[in-house]
Design a protein around this nucleic acid. Sequence first.
DNA 1: CTATACGTCCCACATCATGGGATGGTAGAG
DNA 2: CTCTACCATCCCATGATGTGGGACGTATAG
Lengths: 276, 276
Amino acid sequence: MEHAPSIDSRNGDGESDEADARAGKVPAGSQTLLRGLDVLEAVVAGPVSLSDLAGGLGLTRSTTHRLANALIERRYLAMAPGRGYQLGPKLLELGFRAQQQIDLVQVARSRLEHLADRSEDTVHLGVRDGDRALYLDKIAGRRRIAISSRVGDRHPLTATGLGKALLIDEPRAAWEALFAADQAGGAVPIAWDVWHDRMQGYVQVGRAFDLEENEDQIRCVAAPVRDVTGRVVGALSVSSAAQYMDDRRMEALTRDVVETARQVSEDLGWSGNSPR
Amino acid sequence: MEHAPSIDSRNGDGESDEADARAGKVPAGSQTLLRGLDVLEAVVAGPVSLSDLAGGLGLTRSTTHRLANALIERRYLAMAPGRGYQLGPKLLELGFRAQQQIDLVQVARSRLEHLADRSEDTVHLGVRDGDRALYLDKIAGRRRIAISSRVGDRHPLTATGLGKALLIDEPRAAWEALFAADQAGGAVPIAWDVWHDRMQGYVQVGRAFDLEENEDQIRCVAAPVRDVTGRVVGALSVSSAAQYMDDRRMEALTRDVVETARQVSEDLGWSGNSPR
DNA sequence: CTATACGTCCCACATCATGGGATGGTAGAG
DNA sequence: CTCTACCATCCCATGATGTGGGACGTATAG
């Protein structure tokens, strides 16, 4: 107990459970590494001076300096002449490599499975491919109903829940063009005003519905997935027969679907700041 | 000395200078952090198993596991079900933030100053802006010659060294179009065949010359700057009066200019792999 | 079944990180 | 100019911290 007199100073006498409870489940044993990462993350906000860094983290200047120096040596941080510490080029490189390694389907898989387990319904994952929604993955539910979709299918954007989730950030002009094309292409007829009103509602909540518009007797709840820049790069949905999907259940599912989409987004680096 | 029996196991008896000499200048005092970063960087290559990680780094499985776990907890790493460790979402986030923080001019500044010091000539930094080269920074040399350029100037791409460096990765079709436009726009007349032959030579070496094509009596040596994806995002050049810039000196400067451009590229996250 | 390889967990020991404080440089106020 | 303030950097005695050998449970293969 010689460092920070802050709330979280380590306790050498009490039970170690306290620490475990506080930190979640970090089993300790890497204080230096974790503190180093703290330093790294404290610099995200922008150029900071050493003292500010140390103060903000509850560390001494010595310790902070040593950690920051190691990070500079490895190019994780850089020193801006008269302004303080900045994020370094190594992070650009690692970020880029991470982007190359990450595959949406693989990342989303386990979360989709959990969602399917909880809902007992069929879960889909898809991306936009030109003017269609391309289905990349499907986890079958436990109910004995036929969802005719298959991985690799392309469906209209404006007539499926998943498609509408993919369009949730698009401007009205894009909506209109796609809507007209889908209507002309044989989608279930619907008035533009009705469709547009519904979409605006979906935008507010951050999720979309499909009310038997694409396939009779099938309804679904869908939410968009975003990457690190906040852009919509995919969407996921829960689909079921209308008999299991009354309005109340769709509302109830919303929470779970949106939350799952948020988790997948976080796995893609999104941190919740779409503006900027 | 109980860890790794590898070549670099620490020595507790001899002089510590050995370690300093070997490691460059890391003054030690953050072993855990540095090892953690080693783990992180070892995962860049792709999914790796714990044992392979430990083996490759010369650490024990225990230590590696502890470090990797801490990195997973912080989302710097992720565990691919049956395939091993992967880079995690935090790196996507930090890489993105780093990209937002980094400014080409600011990053390049000190390196350009050193280059200007060594060459005693005027150094420019520029980017492509549509069909022109936009000059973002200028460090005046020590010679008493007039270089009429100013920060904010736009010059033809095909008639300046800096511009040609910016075009170094472009396909022949783009070269032809820009060349035709610049020639029509009043650039110093030159035959397409001659220009094209020279460009191909520049591409081989990774730098471009300006042989009094833009401004009479001014020659320059330029090299492209790349970002993390390998794309050319800027260029820098050394310019001087032709009397100081005979062919031999231009060749001699090439090394220094290319090296400086490489350093700036590394500051932008480039690691030397343009393919992929 | 046994064998191999995986990730995980534990704990005594001593190596390594710690932080108080000293140092040198730079900028601004008086 | 001096004095003060704040910066990053460096040093070193102390003990808290990370270490690695080895045990454990499980999964995949032979």
